[in-house]
């Protein structure tokens, strides 16, 4: 027991000194578990996040929009892979990670449990959802666990195109016909509040925050990140003449930040607990993709084994 306290103390000193922790270093079990949970949740979000956007690839309004959306969805797949690999360095297998997703043991970001009803939703997702993700991810490039931080650096480099393509879609619609502008406003109305929820519960309702900040897993709290997102995004909405659907939103000169209205936390918890508009559909799509791809994975493995045996025989014969 004494040894463990000494190790934990040494570990905290390394974190305090700004050192990065690498997979084979000693770490408290809770640090490992928290990371497996957080990194895998992040990976699952990238993978499930492909579904609402994939819905519009075949119906993108122009080739320019289509290649952009295709490239973005392909990036999300790549981001999922970087993150799964980072999680695996902590001693959990890819199949176990998938199993946790498919059995509902692991979560993914609730934002992907909302439907994409119109083309404008693709714009709103790129602008708001990727915008919120970037705020979180930029913070995570400085997180204490090396593989997670490195994956984040790579992801952040690629993510900025996602947000710009989204905003460009909104810009086009907002400057289009009255119907197009209305479509953009409707997408903003539906995605604004769920985007704010992406940062998680209020600090006082987030029991893990203190430990996460101490271990430098998080460098800022949920509320700090949410405020940062609002302050950045409100002027972007004003620029294209769209209205943020919050009557309480007001610049507070004294604080130097926007004040904003109350988030519907009942809705947040309903979606987290699996009862959002698309939870069942998203999970089923993932499970089907995994199950229906099973013969491909097995065939590839059999082929690889056969090839390896063939080479082995040829070597013996020569």
């Amino acid at each position: 027991m004494g040894d463990k306290i000494i190790l934990e103390d040494k570990f905290q000193k390394r974190i305090d000194a700004g050192e990065k922790i690498e997979p084979k270093d000693w770490m408290p079990e809770k640090y490992r578990k928290t990371h497996i949970r957080q990194i895998s949740q992040h990976a699952h979000s990238e993978i499930v996040g492909m579904l609402p956007e994939g819905n519009w690839i075949t119906r993108a309004p122009s080739l320019r929009r289509k290649v952009g959306l295709l490239a973005k969805v392909q990036d999300e797949a790549g981001h999922g892979l970087y993150l799964y690999s980072a999680a695996e360095t902590l001693g959990i297998s890819r199949d176990q990670l998938f199993d946790q997703l498919h059995t509902g043991k692991a979560k993914y970001s609730s934002i992907f449990n909302y439907p994409t009803l119109s083309w404008a939703d693709i714009g709103a997702i790129g602008w708001l959802v990727d915008g919120a993700a970037i705020i979180n991810q930029v913070m995570l490039t400085r997180t204490s666990f090396g593989p997670y931080a490195r994956a984040m650096v790579r992801i952040c480099k690629e993510e900025s195109f996602h947000q710009r393509q989204g905003y460009e879609i909104m810009l086009g619609l907002a400057n289009g016909t009255p119907e197009q502008k209305e479509m953009a406003q409707d997408a903003l109305n539906r995605f604004w509040w769920p985007s704010l929820m992406m940062f998680g519960p209020r600090d006082e309702d987030s029991p893990n925050t203190e430990q996460s900040v101490k271990w430098k897993i998080k460098r800022k709290t949920n509320d700090e990140l949410r405020q940062q997102f609002i302050d950045i995004t409100v002027p972007q909405a004003e620029y294209i003449g769209l209205t943020i659907p919050d009557p309480d939103l007001k610049w507070n000169e004294e604080r130097g930040h926007y004040d904003f209205g109350e988030i519907d936390w009942d809705e947040f918890w309903t979606v987290v607990k699996g009862n959002g508009p698309c939870n069942k559909e998203r999970l089923q799509a993932r499970i089907d993709a995994w199950d229906e791809g099973s013969w491909v994975r097995d065939a590839a493995m059999s082929y690889a084994e056969k090839q390896a045996n063939q080479i082995g025989k040829e070597k013996l014969a020569s």
């Binding site: 890819r94 199949d95 493995m301």
Partner: peptide, 12 residues
């Protein structure tokens, strides 16, 4: 679920 059970055919 045990590791061996689900990762029998996991790609290396």
């Amino acid at each position: 679920m045990g590791k061996s059970e689900i990762s029998k055919n996991e790609w290396p």
